[in-house]
Write a protein that binds this DNA or RNA. Structure first.
Length: 318
DNA sequence: TTGTGTTTTATTGCCTCC
DNA sequence: GGAGGCAATAAAACACAA
């Protein structure tokens, strides 16, 4: 007698959750179908061959109701006393054969819900009880749900990881941009401060700045709104003012930087002043003022003179 | 061989639907 | 109220390492 691996290996079992209590016995006795109907015609049952059987542990029952032993070894213990033992003992749990499982799997793939008609048909075809078919489908659906949960988890986890990478990148980019904003604000503040310092002395249009004695300078706009004012530190104040009036040696426009001019306003000769330079009265100073833009000059008509303390000397504007 | 973890079969109790 | 589905659970069957 050819039996599936599960059936042959199954042999034992029973007991435990499979041990029917009073209620279970009641259920077993009230199977989905009449006991006779669970036996399928041989032509419809490829899994049990001509002797369609229902599985009862170490035994199988064919259409005639005869009990068969499962293996040659088991056959040795088959006898009336064992039949009595079997029927007095709880039903054994048994695994389905590979073929039966494959058949059920195909059926499940087609439709994982089981209508009563299909259940009966499958039971007939597989030589199983309809209740076994129902239980198998139920457990199979449970396994499918578990698998689906695992799949969903993996999918969500992958998405989460991708989003986390994006989020981390955005955080870094945000930090970088914040730093950039910070530096830009710093630059802006510095420029505004510079403007505030220069606003008081810059007038709309050409004007003249007087540097506190003995320094004097004349300031004008240029086309690029950049002003370089020069102060002469000559002891001879009149000479310095004279130079300023010429607009040549004593006045120059350059790149908006505080510079020291030696003799002429040649940009090649401009350099940053050292504090010590101011002590040398023979030097000529040029002070590069911030951009002159319209409206920055706010000379008060009532009091056109106001001092600007900066760089150790004062500008006077009117 | 034995202990342990996993899979499979089956039961139980609860819930919903008709 | 019965039938059927589902979650939780039991326990046999099975796989595998020590």
């Amino acid at each position: 007698m050819m039996m599936g691996r599960g059936m042959i290996g199954g042999g034992g079992g029973g007991g435990g959750g499979n041990v029917p209590n009073q209620k279970q016995k009641l259920k077993i006795s009230s199977l989905d179908q009449p006991f006779d109907s669970i036996f399928a015609p041989a032509s419809l049952n490829p899994f049990t061959g001509s002797g369609a059987m229902v599985d009862f542990g170490a035994f199988s029952v064919n259409m005639s109701g005869n009990l068969f032993c499962r293996s040659l070894e088991q056959e040795e213990i088959c006898g009336d006393e064992h039949l009595d033992e079997y029927f007095n003992h709880p039903e054994k749990k048994r695994r389905l054969t590979v073929d039966q499982v494959q058949f059920l799997e195909k059926s499940f793939e087609a439709e994982n819900k089981l209508e009563p008609e299909r259940k009966s048909q499958l039971a007939v075809e597989l030589g199983l009880q309809p209740r076994q078919i129902a239980i198998w489908f139920q457990n199979r659906r449970a396994r499918l749900r578990t698998k689906q949960v695992e799949t969903d988890y993996e999918t969500l986890n992958e998405k989460y990881n991708c989003l986390k990478i994006d989020y981390d990148n955005l955080l870094k980019e945000n930090e970088k941009l914040n730093q950039e904003v910070f530096h830009l604000k710093e630059n802006l503040n510095a420029k505004e401060k510079e403007k505030e310092n220069s606003q008081s002395c810059i007038m709309k249009g050409p004007c003249e700045l007087w540097i506190e004695n003995p320094i004097s300078a004349t300031v004008s706009n240029d086309e690029e709104s950049t002003v370089l004012a020069m102060a002469c530190l000559n002891e001879d104040q009149s000479e310095a003012r004279s130079d300023s009036s010429t607009g040549t040696d004593s006045l120059c426009y350059n790149n908006g930087r505080l510079s020291l001019l030696l003799e002429t306003c040649d940009s090649s000769q401009v350099f940053e002043p050292e504090r010590s330079d101011f002590s040398d009265e023979s030097l000529q100073l040029s002070y590069v003022l911030p951009k002159m833009e319209e409206g920055y000059c706010h000379t008060s008509p009532a009091n056109p003179w106001f001092p600007i303390e900066d760089h150790g000397f004062s500008f006077w504007s009117y």
